[in-house]
């Protein structure tokens, strides 16, 4: 179980996260929703070790993770698909996937994991020799997710994976995330696409200007008037315009 407790994050003198607490239980999909600049990405980056929190703790089971560099957090069992995909553009698809299994424990199982990832994303197998930079946006996102899966970790952090992709592709990716979750991997997802995310997730946290202002079962949040108005931009009268998974 991933537990964040009382987390503060500063950018220089500017405080951007205030006493954030949340948890991701084993096998759960948890969504972080909130408007632009609310601090969603900052939070997920802090969990991955890319930003050092000024106060509070991050634990995976009994392991204390705050103040550790990113490579140690990956070793502890948390993988991240960063915003903007961040592939190694000049490396081939296969080389990117192999880099995902850079850790010693993942290296031992690399052939099996690779087979599993190719099963999930058959297109990556077809393109395995192409440079990652030449893939389409959707394929690049699949590669980014596949690369994170190669570490064989229990927790997957997804930062804005639907950004810049077509709605159809996004729907497919959401289905795949659900599929990955069924294998027992916990998911913490940050998304702009609130309705779809809430339909995918078990629970969700609402974050506004660096504070957590609400949490609950995803389904009840999806139906709460406040969420509908603030994040879906619709009142209760226009039910049908919600995109669905």
């Amino acid at each position: 179980m991933l537990v964040v407790d009382g987390l503060d994050v500063h950018y220089g003198d500017l405080q951007v996260l205030w006493g954030i607490s949340l948890e991701v239980r084993d096998g759960e999909i948890v969504a972080l929703i909130g408007s632009n600049g609310a601090g969603k990405s900052t939070l997920i980056r802090a969990i991955a070790g890319l930003i050092r929190p000024t106060k509070g703790t991050i634990r995976l089971d009994h392991l204390l993770l705050n103040r550790r560099p990113p490579h140690e957090i990956v070793k502890a069992g948390i993988s991240m698909v960063p915003e903007g995909r961040r592939l190694f553009p000049k490396m081939s698809v296969l080389q990117n996937l192999r880099m995902g299994a850079f850790m010693k424990k993942a290296r031992h199982e690399i052939e099996q994991t690779l087979g599993w990832v190719y099963d999930i994303f058959p297109v990556l197998k077809e393109r395995s020799d192409q440079p990652a930079g030449l893939l389409s946006g959707g394929e690049q996102q699949m590669l980014a997710i596949g690369r994170a899966l190669m570490a064989n970790n229990r927790v997957l952090l997804l930062d804005e994976m639907s950004l810049g992709l077509s709605p159809l592709l996004v729907q497919n990716l959401f289905k795949i995330i659900a599929q990955i979750n069924e294998t027992g991997i916990s998911v913490l997802i940050v998304e702009q696409n609130v309705p779809m995310t809430l339909r995918l997730a078990d629970r969700a946290y609402i974050i506004e200007t660096g504070h957590i202002v609400g949490e609950g079962a995803a389904e009840s949040l999806l139906n709460s008037p406040r969420v509908r108005e603030a994040y879906l931009g619709i009142g209760p009268e226009c039910e049908d315009s919600l995109g669905g998974v």
């Binding site: 080389q95 880099m99 850079f102």
Partner: peptide
Amino acid sequence: TYFGQSVVAVSQDQEAASLMGVNVS
């Protein structure tokens, strides 16, 4: 070599490499 590939990865995207478990320092 794996280490060599991690060097190439760092040269292309340092932060992404750290997320793969590469000790960038």
